[in-house]
Amino acid sequence: NSLVVWLFGMYGISQSLGVSIAPGLSPDWLYPRIVWGGLWGFLFLLPVLNNRLWAQTFVLSLFPTMIQLFLVFPYQTPHGVAGLGLGTLTPL
């Protein structure tokens, strides 16, 4: 995800869609995303233990998304709820 965000910013795809995310690829930017991505990734191992894999994986994927949109963006960045300060397509 982080590499795709970086590539989209580097090639101007984000800006052409009206989203102002264009990070530089540096260890300071990448490290927290790798750590938190790994921690949230453990949630995706839970459905493997059950037979309703697709439905549970979809539901579990909503948790990190909601945390990012409704806790991280409004309280830890100046971009507001759902990161709409970066552009209207940011939640996608």
Score class of each variant (00 low, 15 high):
P23I: 00
L43E: 00
P91C: 02
P27V: 12
T88L: 14
V72K: 01
L86A: 03
L17P: 04
I67R: 11
G41Y: 04
L3Y: 09
S26D: 14
G87N: 07
V48R: 08
Y75M: 10
L45Y: 02
Y75N: 09
T65K: 08
G38H: 02
F42G: 10
L60G: 03
Q76P: 00
V5A: 15
N1H: 09
A55G: 08
V4R: 15
S16H: 11
L49C: 07
S2A: 13
P78K: 08
F44H: 10
G87I: 14
T65V: 14
L49G: 06
G12R: 07
T77L: 15
W29K: 06
S14E: 01
V35F: 10
F70E: 00
P23V: 01
N50E: 12
N51K: 12
I67W: 10
L25Y: 04
I21T: 10
V81K: 11
L92F: 11
G87L: 04
L43W: 02
G12V: 08
L39H: 03
D28T: 09
Q15P: 02
G12E: 09
L84H: 02
V48I: 12
Q76V: 06
L92K: 01
V4M: 13
T57P: 03
Y31T: 07
L45A: 09
L39I: 15
L84N: 02
I13H: 14
V4T: 15
M10G: 07
L60S: 06
L84E: 01
V59E: 05
T88K: 12
F8H: 09
Q56R: 15
L25K: 04
T90W: 01
L69V: 11
F8Q: 12
V48H: 13
S26M: 14
P32A: 00
V35P: 05
G87Q: 07
L39S: 02
L46F: 09
P91D: 06
F42T: 11
N1S: 05
S16M: 10
S61F: 08
S20A: 12
V5F: 11
N50V: 08
I67V: 15
V59Y: 00
L43C: 02
P78T: 09
L53R: 15
S14C: 03
N51C: 08
F8T: 13
G85H: 03
V19T: 03
L71R: 06
G37V: 04
L84S: 01
P23M: 00
M66K: 03
A22G: 09
L30H: 02
F42P: 03
G38I: 05
S26E: 13
Y31G: 03
L86P: 03
W54R: 05
P78F: 01
I67Y: 13
V81S: 14
H79Y: 15
M10R: 12
V81W: 15
W54G: 05
L69E: 02
T90D: 05
A55N: 13
F42R: 12
R52N: 08
I34V: 15
G38D: 12
G80T: 14
F44N: 05
F63D: 08
G24L: 12
A55T: 14
G85Y: 01
F70C: 09
L30G: 00
L45P: 01
L49P: 03
P91Y: 01
N50M: 08
F73Q: 06
I21F: 06
F42A: 10
I67P: 03
L84V: 09
P74Q: 06
V4L: 14
R33S: 04
I13M: 04
